[in-house]
Design a protein around this nucleic acid. Structure first.
Lengths: 342, 342
DNA sequence: CGACCCGATGCAACCGGTTGCAAACAGGCC
DNA sequence: GGCCTGTTTGCAACCGGTTGCATCGGGTCG
């Protein structure tokens, strides 16, 4: 069986061929496929019929050459192990597709040299770059500040970089809300499980959390750390903490930088036979958080709203300005309580 | 602050500008950027310096117009809730990037009309389409058989469709191996937890599993079903099964169509206080399977090998032939045993 | 009935590269 | 020095569309 079907002869059908068959010029064909162009209904019909008969589809790359719009958006991702990344990717690609854009997925996981990759994306004339909660490495920051041919939008990271529009949630308020929830539950020794980003930048959610504690005359009782946003490292962090801390000195509650770490921590508690002895709150509200097994209390960003705002920025080619901070909502389940209580 | 930097004046730098500065013709510039083209070292140097000074990057879209190769591969995905999808996406994009190709992510999750989307991808002149374990809907099959301008490769699904090259693992052998493992453990009442694909196509892994049981004079003792590959549905399936089946009649062991369902099932067992009372085996070996909490016995496909083979098919534009079936390996952990035994 | 206007169409030029061919050039050999 | 060969380079044409402008034709209006 041959790769080529009978009617295309290995060459793609061009507008000129359609034009000939429809008895018009190729420019008229172009107009027939351009919404709002000046063309008679009659001509449009004939062109469309001819196009259908020949199996013509306009070459969008050729079109981009003159229009200077490719309808391609570079979507930059690094943390493939985090389910939240998957949710963002799903939401972002769907939203882009709905607006007639396609996503070029740029994977800047560790071995990849991100500067080079962004450079290549630029050669493909992407209309914009969308960073899905990626850690902004030096490479990226340099790229962003040096070349601003293309709109750049960063989701869910509040570190400000020149030339990059930020769209995130009101993390400071979220952190504060979580602190109040835990305090309201009667917890007094509150800790934080930090991910790799905490080392690189100031996280408003932590600030909000800490400040609320201080407003209540408390301080952050302990900080645990995970070197990557994956289940195993949340597990590890909790496991190590339990090992080195006598039961009497342990935390009442732990706010985790995101859900996958929180679930890792919950699993470590379970493994140690300490289910429900230490309250846990996560962030992102991934699908697994709702599982009857975890019932993880978490903070749910309004993903659709964030993605929508980001895409609007990109497509309108807005000049980067103040961060857009949208509200989320606290999803209260059970993990923030001691088991058996209340 | 303006989007445009100082030196580009809103226009991109073109090869002609570089040519002028380097004192050569634009054709020479083109050759300087074409590996293996005939050009003197001297000229190349001068071009490269000029290019560097002007910040020139070749427009790859313009190039594709004549070369008829875009270096864009459409990567088609539907099950964003499955962690295995994420692993595939990661592996596929990395492998493509290493070969100088970029991925256009095509999200055909339910609301999307997949036929239309593939049509659009074709207009973008993708060099090939890679289906990451997607369910082959009617739309897709029609697309595949009607238009074969572009090489199509399907990963991890063995349903043969005309014009689509399959790259998967030796599922039949895998299913048999899993059956032998469970039988060797002393289990006799073996069941299967099916996902949505089982309804649409014959899964060799199930055939291999069932056949091995029959070779031992047994039959499949029960089949559970989940309507989607997500944690909640694995949980639900097990939960319902436990509800409707008296303890005395329950299965010894359950082979689950994939890991995310298996983990859902394990969580349901835990919730019912039946940890370790029913042996579970999964498929895909996702990251979470290795967690100390689950220690899920699973079958690990050689993802890199599969992806590599698939990409080779695409880039070499091979004519679709017999399915390429690669071996995987059984990862034996603890979930296939009764707790406390051995 | 001629002037005018407007919508529809054709055309040349262009978007930013690449390809095949031919001319220019350089070096090696007798 | 002349001839041959092989490498470099310039050029026209092209990839498949779009854009701005000129032209054409038909309907309206005075």
């Amino acid at each position: 069986m041959n790769i080529r079907s009978d009617r295309d002869q290995g060459r793609k059908v061009t507008s000129a061929q359609v034009a000939e068959r429809a008895g018009v010029s190729k420019w008229t064909v172009s107009r027939a496929f351009t919404p709002g162009a000046s063309i008679s209904e009659n001509a449009r019909q004939r062109v469309m019929e001819a196009a259908e008969a020949l199996g013509y589809r306009p070459n969008l790359l050729a079109r981009s050459l003159t229009t200077r719009r490719t309808q391609l958006i570079g979507v930059v991702v690094d943390q493939f192990a985090n389910p939240h990344t998957q949710a963002m990717l799903n939401a972002a690609t769907l939203a882009l597709q709905q607006r007639g854009q396609l996503s070029i997925l740029l994977n800047i996981s560790p071995p990849v040299r991100s500067g080079e990759l962004l450079d290549i994306a630029e050669r493909f004339q992407v209309d914009g770059l969308l960073f899905l909660g990626t850690v902004l490495s030096e490479d990226i920051v340099r790229f962003a500040t040096e070349r601003q041919h293309v709109p750049l939008v960063q989701l869910f990271r509040t570190t400000e970089v020149d030339g990059v529009q930020i769209v995130a949630i009101q993390e400071h308020a979220a952190g504060a809300e979580i602190a109040r929830l835990l305090l309201g539950e009667g917890h007094r020794r509150l800790g934080y499980l930090a991910g790799p980003d905490s080392g690189r930048s100031r996280l408003p959610r932590l600030d909000g959390y800490r400040q609320t504690l201080e407003d209540h005359g408390l301080t952050l009782a302990a900080t645990l750390a995970a070197t990557d946003y994956r289940h195993a490292l949340g597990y590890q962090a909790m496991h190590d903490y339990l090992q080195r801390t006598p039961a009497a000195q342990r935390l009442d509650a732990l706010f985790c930088e995101n859900d996958i770490l929180a679930i890792g921590a919950l699993d470590a508690l379970h493994q140690a036979g300490l289910d429900g002895q230490l309250a846990i709150v996560g962030f992102d509200d991934i699908e697994l958080a709702a599982s009857p097994r975890y019932r993880l209390t978490s903070y749910q960003p309004n993903l659709d709203a964030v993605v929508d705002s980001a895409i609007t920025h990109l497509l309108d080619r807005r000049i980067p300005g103040d961060p857009t901070l949208l509200p989320g909502r606290l999803v209260v389940r059970d993990s923030h309580r001691f088991a058996g209580k209340d």
